[in-house]
Design a protein around this nucleic acid. Structure first.
Length: 606
RNA sequence: CGGGGCGUAGCGCAGUCUGGUAGCGCACCUGGUUCGGGACCAGGGGGUCGGAGGUUCGAAUCCUCUCGCCCCGACCA
């Protein structure tokens, strides 16, 4: 039996000043973790119990679709040279040398190791598909570790890799992971959304991130009641129709706009709304990952010009996906060369667009929201002048028309037409169709049914173990702060209270004996604890000789979802059950408590 | 890497400007009272003031260098 008096649970009344976000403060105060360095944490017994529970759920579900490995964290340089990621990962990977001077790295992820096993061992399509996973420590030399366990340099990740004979097989493996992830996160009690994500620099055809809304998060996502959900880098929306200006003629007309450069200035000067304007943004794209052919045709760098509605914001990731490289703003010299005009008066007319993205010339991208619009106001590429009556298609032709803008809160989702909620979120899982990147670069080949050598197609799938714990605390603390705000009698400051879902809490139940010097109370506590334990419940008995107030506070701090108070009411054969998630207290007869707890826990299981 | 902030007892802080015996609250130890919402009284232990160098009769305090941590940005499967 777990007795608090014998355990190491160093709770703190005050959190160290370093801690900023709720989960960080609470994890420290509850004695779950201690910091060793920037982005490096020790997991104390309570934290370890909780993480072990998460891992057990992940393992149980993953074993249904795959097989567990344990792979080295220490990897030789040569392996990563093969995939091109020794250099590709840059400073984000920890590098070290052994005594002989051989170079090694601490693996950030395990595509290379898994693929090397696959290429050495897999020979035939008959051996496919394979789903291989592991749960282990990853190392990333983050430029800026932050927010407690949310962004760290050493953390636990479940990562899985699938190998299939063809794209249809990959689709199946991907779907299996999607379903498994939903089960895992539900069992962990997470309130999550799966969003379409940008595939990033890794390429590939499909990618979804599993997100939990929380202000502590670093990603922006959009979702709606209809079930639509997407990363801001992918999100699109239906726009309310806007009325175009009444034209003053059939062709663009110069307007003198001395000293008016910004959208707002021009808008108020010409007495028009900002959505009547065409905004011009100029970038240079550098093609670090482009193939040789691409560089040959369009050059190592290239001018990229984006046109957006005046009141819209550019999403650089969307634009970068079209431009196939990294973007940076043009310098004034580059602007002068491209437009023959100063910033503030840039516009589409007279700009020579490349006829095709793969052809040389300026890559001109018109945001889809401007398609079909008429009589816009745009820069004239002439100092102190703008143009009115500018109509895309008629007056100028872009290289491509594409969605390159950020959506806004409240716009309607493209599927169900429900208002979109925009918010910060933390990523707890990611599933990703990798394609052939590693099979190709590392030479994995199998024979297909026709005896022909083919590359297996891969997928990779990650779950951040610590992030599940962190997100659960953030969510609960936020919900609690809201409850507290509604109940003005609560003296707890916002975000100081939380409770974990029973499935991932270090204990499911805590029994608080209000006074251990009263033999009756102590005996009753021992009895209930023993009964619960016999019934398979994970119970902690607070048998410390402390004042009741201290024990209540501590019980709340460690986030255990159910608390049984044994005190005065025992004389009437009653104990109190506090449900921390709903903040309700119920008196129950002593002899029914075990069965009642069991039914509660069963009901909370998914 | 750019900007900002902070390093004084386990935690939270004062003292630094204006150099002169290193302090307070919580925690911890001992004794007593108390005992359903972070008790009270009395006594006690605990600090190379992040580190190095310098100025000075004398440095937590002034100067130089350095290390670490946090926040914003950049970055980021």
């Amino acid at each position: 039996m777990q007795r608090w008096s014998k355990l190491f649970i160093p709770t703190l009344r005050e959190a160290p000043t370093d801690a900023e976000v709720a989960s960080h403060k609470l994890l420290l105060r509850a004695g779950y973790i201690r910091q060793l360095g920037a982005g490096i944490y020790s997991y104390l017994p309570l934290g370890q119990r909780s993480l072990n529970k998460i891992i057990a759920i992940v393992r149980q579900e993953m074993d249904k679709i795959g097989q567990e490995f344990f792979l080295p964290a220490l990897n030789p340089r040569e392996l990563w040279e093969e995939s091109g990621r020794w250099a590709g990962m840059g400073q984000n990977m920890f590098h070290l040398k052994d005594r002989k001077g051989a170079e090694l790295c601490l693996a950030m992820t395990h595509e290379e190791v898994m693929t090397s096993i696959a290429r050495n061992e897999l020979r035939s399509y008959k051996q496919l598909p394979q789903i291989w996973y592991q749960i282990q420590t990853k190392f990333r030399d983050e430029p800026r570790p932050r927010s407690g366990l949310l962004r760290v340099r050493q953390f636990t990740m479940k990562d899985a890799y699938s190998f299939d004979i063809d794209a249809a097989g990959l689709d199946e493996s991907y779907k299996k992971h999607y379903d498994t992830y939903c089960r895992i996160f539900k069992r962990c009690g997470m309130d999550f959304v799966a969003v379409d994500a940008d595939s990033g620099a890794m390429g590939g055809s499909g990618s979804q991130e599993f997100m939990v809304y929380t202000d502590a998060g670093e990603d922006l996502i959009a979702s709606s009641a209809s079930g639509y959900a997407a990363n801001l880098e992918k999100a699109t929306s239906k726009l309310a129709p806007v009325e175009d200006l009444i034209p003053t003629g059939d062709t663009p007309e110069l307007v003198h706009t001395p000293g008016f450069r910004t959208i707002d200035e021009v808008g108020s000067f010409l007495q028009t709304k900002s959505h009547h304007q065409l905004k011009t943004m100029a970038y240079i794209v550098e093609h670090p990952e482009a193939d040789a052919k691409q560089i040959k045709t369009v050059g190592k760098t290239r001018a990229v010009v984006a046109f957006l509605r005046g009141d819209h914001q550019l999403n650089e990731t969307k634009l970068a996906a079209i431009a196939l490289g990294e973007l940076r703003p043009m310098t004034p010299e580059e602007i002068a060369e491209t437009f023959k005009a100063p910033a503030g008066y840039l516009g589409p007319i007279g700009l020579e667009a490349a006829p095709h993205p793969r052809k040389p010339g300026v890559l001109v991208v018109l945001d889809a929201a401007l398609e079909g619009r008429k009589n816009l106001i745009a820069g004239a590429n002439k100092e102190e002048y703008h143009l009115r009556n500018v109509t895309p298609g008629r007056d100028f032709k872009p290289t491509v028309i594409a969605d390159i803008r950020n959506i806004n809160e409240g716009e309607l989702d493209p599927i169900g037409g429900e208002p979109l909620r925009l918010g910060k979120a933390v990523e707890i899982g990611h599933i990703f169709k990798l394609g052939y990147k590693y099979s190709e670069s590392m030479g994995a080949r199998v024979l297909d049914a026709n005896g022909k050598e083919v590359m297996p197609i891969m997928g990779c799938y990650g779950i951040g173990i610590e992030r599940i714990l962190t997100a659960a605390i953030e969510s609960s603390a936020a919900a609690n702060a809201q409850l507290s705000a509604e109940d003005l009698n609560t003296k707890q400051p916002a975000g100081e209270q939380y409770a974990l879902p029973a499935a991932i809490a270090p204990f499911e139940v805590i029994i608080t004996i209000t006074n251990v010097r009263e033999a009756d109370l102590l005996a009753a506590g021992e009895k209930i604890a023993a009964d619960l334990e016999a019934a398979g419940v994970d119970v902690l008995l607070d048998d410390r000789d402390e004042r009741a107030g201290v024990k209540f506070k501590d019980a709340e701090l460690i986030g255990v979802p159910y608390r049984i108070n044994i005190g005065k009411k025992l004389a009437e054969g009653q104990v109190e059950l506090v449900d921390r998630l709903t903040q309700t207290t119920t008196d129950l007869p002593l002899d029914t408590i075990t069965a009642y707890i069991q039914s509660l826990l069963n009901a909370s299981k998914v």
